[in-house]
Amino acid sequence: MIKAIQLSKRYCTLDALKSIDVEISHNSLTYIVGPNGSGKTTFIKSVLELVKPSSGSIYIDNIKLNGDHAYRYKIGYMPQIASFPENLTVKEVINLLKEIRGNYNSLDEELIPKLNLVNEYDKPIRTLSGGTKQKLNAVIAFLFNPEILILDEPSAGLDPVSSSLLKDKIVKEKANGKTVLFTSHIMSELEELAENIIFLLEGAVCFSGKKEELIAVTEERNLERAIAKLMMGKNL
């Protein structure tokens, strides 16, 4: 369970998050949507302690984040941009992460053959294409069987086949009892996966609840239209 209370983040002149309250329950699929610059990534990075909140607090499984890194054993994170040391091979990058986690056995390597990464194992990172790096990123997020998966724009830069494989994997892990959190700035992109929606707009939570609820409230056909209506309503 992830809980944020009165979470605010201010960069010099910009309020990235304006005192938001978010609760993401255990074993749920939560889709954080919002236009560019709405605070999605800032929220995710606060959960990972990559960004230090200006005020407010975050609890993971009822433990308040305070700088102790142990809670991140529970989290698998797929960042927006994939970047690794250029001269290391794919295998070495994976080994580095195994050594950091001290976990060599209980691994979930399902995605490695599925995403055709076996052939790339001994290639240096600098020779890989952007898409392949993104695949490696996805593999790393799932590798250590984390309880909580945080995927920042997971389908960006992936080809349709890999993207659908990744979606299947997300559904499967949810069925295995994992909590999954993912974002996108294109509403329709991952709509099929979403159970809960958190819609962020200019650093504030605009809507938070079940997908069906949102569609029912706005009386629209799909998520994109529902959110469009929500945004228009807010503007009026």
């Binding site: 990972l48 302690e49 990559l50 890194h69 142990a70 809670y71 991140r72 054993y73 989290i75 994170y77 960042p79 941009i81 994939a82 970047s83 690794f84 040391p85 992460l97 950091i100 986690r101 990123n137 790393i140």
Partner: peptide, 15 residues
């Protein structure tokens, strides 16, 4: 140039 890589490592359980 290693900034994104640093982000990835910091998302792991590491001080």
């Amino acid at each position: 140039s290693n900034r994104d890589y640093i982000i990835l490592i910091l998302s792991q359980p590491i001080n």
